[in-house]
Design a protein around this nucleic acid. Structure first.
Length: 418
RNA sequence: GCCACGGUGGUGUAACGGUAGCACGGGGGCCUGUGGAGCCCUUAGCCCGAGUUCGAGUCUCGGCUGUGGCCCCA
């Protein structure tokens, strides 16, 4: 056990791990850019009052405060975005992405850390459901770019959920929504008991509640669920059906399920909300929704909708891949040849090939040993090579070696690594 | 914030309350220009602090931290 370790809930990313992270982040960035999102980032810390303005009590207690509470570390990427956009003029719709760390002071556990990365894409300035559909399609594509297939999008609308809750337990909507969110995790009997606890003890409410649970289970088809939505909140139902039909046009055969009990945590959502999950028993890997009210808290209000990919969860589900052995180790047999070694390594690098040189003046044997752990080739530079203006290129896998000019060697390496 | 179980070199592990060992990894050598094997040397550890005891890695308590669960969330 080291005397000093990373702070609680925070991690060091060693090279193999970091390599996977960077690859995943690059893959996501590439998709976001393809959909026209531009990069934008904000500081790790914000004025505390900015963060406190709109976050539930739960998150408030998780904020990392510094400077006697005057400043604090951002707990998500959406609130800082709202601050920036509400006091700047961007051509609308403004579409940005941001991949970076956020901090929450919680008890660490599976898939949950005190410092973790989110990959957000947001659209500011569009009230149309086209924005939702685009975000869903984009996130779906990003997730499949990471090698996951069969992702399912769960879709609901805050307005609808609220209306339904209101019809059953006026005044206790948020408790009821939280309870509905547990559906599937606890038994039906427990659901009913919990429902009674939060105020639905009378037979009439219970009947409505059981009725609703039953109708959700019975509504096997999207059409039936939409009809159920229509009954409670026509405007939400219209939005939902629009999102579904638009999303189908992205040519990705995106599987969308209406989940009338989907709630999501952040209380700034005002309209459609969505999550993406990869399968039963695996938590969601992305979530988002419309938060039209948030920007107005910081200045100029505007429409806004966003989605956030949970990098940590996605990475933990990805197969552990070893870094590929690539590149060339340019070995040097004696100090007087090191200058030539540098020149040859530089030539490889100029050609786009990863090149190492021996920094520790070690024996050729040691250099071979080291090279075999990370490289595909070793290029030996010694007396006879320097004299001939060439190098000995050895394929570390086959063990074959030959005396080549630098240009030939580069061609050979490229051929092999292609 | 709550609950359960853990914490021995960098990693993985062993040691009845009695000298902290082993393997892998790292560095060097056997081998002064050719790797993956073998052998040798070396490096490096009982999470922290109290208590019980002649004596604590081992028992007790507290803290820190890790894993998992609850809550909540990504």
């Amino acid at each position: 056990m080291a005397e000093y370790s990373a702070p609680k809930g925070m991690r060091d990313f060693l090279p193999d791990e970091m390599d996977r992270r960077e690859r995943a982040i690059e893959a996501i960035k590439k998709i976001y850019r393809k959909y026209g999102f531009v990069p934008m980032d904000t500081p790790a810390m914000e004025m505390a009052e900015v963060l406190e303005k709109k976050c539930g009590e739960e998150i408030r207690g998780q904020i990392f405060r510094i400077d006697d509470g005057k400043h604090a570390l951002r707990f998500d990427l959406t609130v800082p975005l709202s601050r920036v956009v509400s006091s700047n003029t961007f051509r609308k719709p403004f579409k940005r992405y941001c991949i970076g760390p956020v901090w929450r002071r919680e008890e660490p556990q599976k898939g949950r850390f005190r410092e973790f990365y989110q990959a957000d894409a947001d659209i500011i300035g569009s009230s149309s459901m086209r924005a939702e559909a685009e975000l869903i399609a984009c996130a779906h594509e990003a997730i499949s770019a990471l090698g996951f297939c069969g992702a399912t999008v769960l879709l609901n609308d805050r307005r609808l959920a609220f209306k339904i809750a209101q019809s059953m337990l006026p005044g206790k909507e948020s408790s009821l929504l939280r309870l509905l969110d547990k559906r599937g995790k606890i038994s039906r009997q427990q659901m009913i008991e919990e429902f009674a606890k939060i105020g639905g003890a009378d037979p009439k409410s219970q009947e409505m509640f059981i009725d609703f649970l039953g109708s959700m289970e019975k509504s096997a088809t999207e059409k039936q669920r939409l009809e159920l939505a229509e009954e409670h909140c026509p405007e939400a139902a219209e939005s939902l059906s629009e999102i579904i039909s638009l999303a189908q046009e992205y040519g990705r055969s995106i599987k969308i399920e209406l989940d009338l009990a989907l709630v999501r945590g952040m209380d700034y959502y005002t309209g459609p909300i969505f999550e993406i999950k990869l399968g039963e028993g695996i938590g969601s890997v992305a979530g988002g929704g419309r938060y039209d009210g948030l920007l107005g808290l910081y200045g100029q209000g505007d429409y806004a909708v966003g989605i956030s990919l949970g990098i940590e969860r996605l990475l933990s589900l990805m197969k552990e891949g070893k870094r590929a052995k690539g590149g060339v180790f340019v070995a040097c047999t004696a100090d007087e040849h090191y200058a030539q070694t540098i020149r040859i390594a530089s030539a490889f690098r100029a050609a786009g090939i990863v090149a190492h040189t021996d920094l520790n003046s070690r024996s050729l044997k040691k250099q071979m040993e080291f090279a075999s752990g990370c490289c595909a080739f070793i290029a030996i530079v010694g007396e006879k090579e320097t004299a001939a203006g060439k190098l000995t290129l050895r394929d570390l896998e086959s063990g074959k070696e030959e005396l080549l000019g630098v240009e030939e060697a580069i061609r050979k390496v490229k051929e092999r690594l292609a």
